[in-house]
Each structure stands twice: as C-alpha cells, then as structure tokens.
Amino acid sequence: MGFKIVRLANFIGEEASIYSIFDEIDDSTLLDRFIKENIVAFKSEILDIVKRLKTINTITGAKEYFFKLDEGLPGDGVCALYDNPDSHLRLYCIRYGNSLVIIGGGGEKRKEIRTWQESEKLAKEANRMIGISKKITLRIKEREIEFEENGTKLTGNLEFYEDEEIS
C-alpha cells in the first residue's frame, strides 16, 4: 500500500492546479484529513485556508509570497501556506512554480513552538512531504513524471509505495 498524487476536482480554476496526496491506508487525501482533524477547533482558519486555495486556483496562481518557503530541504519545493504568527494551523505543500501545488497535511502550531522540528505532529507531516518530494523528484529525473500544459498538469506514474527506495 502507498499513496498517489490526485488532482482535486473541486478546484476548477486554471491559474494553478491543486493536487493532494491520496493515502491508500486512510482512504483519504492528506488535505481532507487535515480539514477533518481541525475543522471543529479552528473552523474559521480552515475556511480561510480553503478560500486562499480557491483564489490561487482561480485568480492569482501559486505566487511564492503566498507561502512560507524553505520548510523542507534546499530546493525540494516543500513549503507551507503562509500562516500568521497568531494563527493556529500550518499546512504543508509542495509548490512547483506558480502553476501547480500539491497540498499535504499539517496540524496545530502551538505558541511555544518556534520550528516544526519541535512539534511531533508537524515534524511528521513536514517529513512526509519532504519524503514525497524526494520520490517525485526522482521520478521527474527518470522521466516517469512530467509537467505538461505550461506546468499546470502532472502526468506519468503518480502512484507510489511507502517503502519505495529513494536513491
């Protein structure tokens, strides 16, 4: 069992495509799980995040200044949707230019925590996206995954095994 990259059909705009990771064990996407985990405690923040994703999808594209960059390893594209210092949630993504973003998971960033490494939940979610980014990069290098239609579309082998080796 593993995961696959899926395009979220709820976002029908053309400025940037919104993808997520479908986890075959959870039978859910990481974005759905993030919403379900946080909608009760932080409903207004979830609504705000979804509104911003819709604007990115339909109007602005995934401009880099809408994200907190460099949340992963250098050059791996792992970032987080910008969160205000006084907000409670962090949502990790992998951004491929202005045209495509893969939404991952996230969680609560408690006030006493300065970096994701200090939070078990955020560390797990960030590390997962770092691992996924590595796997995607490897397949891009091997031309198993390609970007099409001006970088708005991912094609190729988008299904992965969790224990797949990364060389």
């Binding site: 395009r7 059909a9 709820n10 993808y19 859910s28 996407t29 974005l31 759905d32 979804v50």
Partner: peptide, 23 residues
C-alpha cells in the same frame, strides 16, 4: 502519459458550502 486521477472531495464540498460569495 497518464494524467493524474481526479478526486472529488466531499469534505471540501462541505467547506465550500460554508463560504459565502462575499467572503
């Protein structure tokens, strides 16, 4: 090459339903 599978999220539908056009 095969395109990514399209996934329609009911969870997202529920969130969208809470967002007014003005918001």
């Amino acid at each position: 090459k095969k395109s990514a599978e399209k996934y329609h999220s009911e969870v997202l539908d529920e969130v969208f339903a809470e967002i007014t056009p003005e918001e």
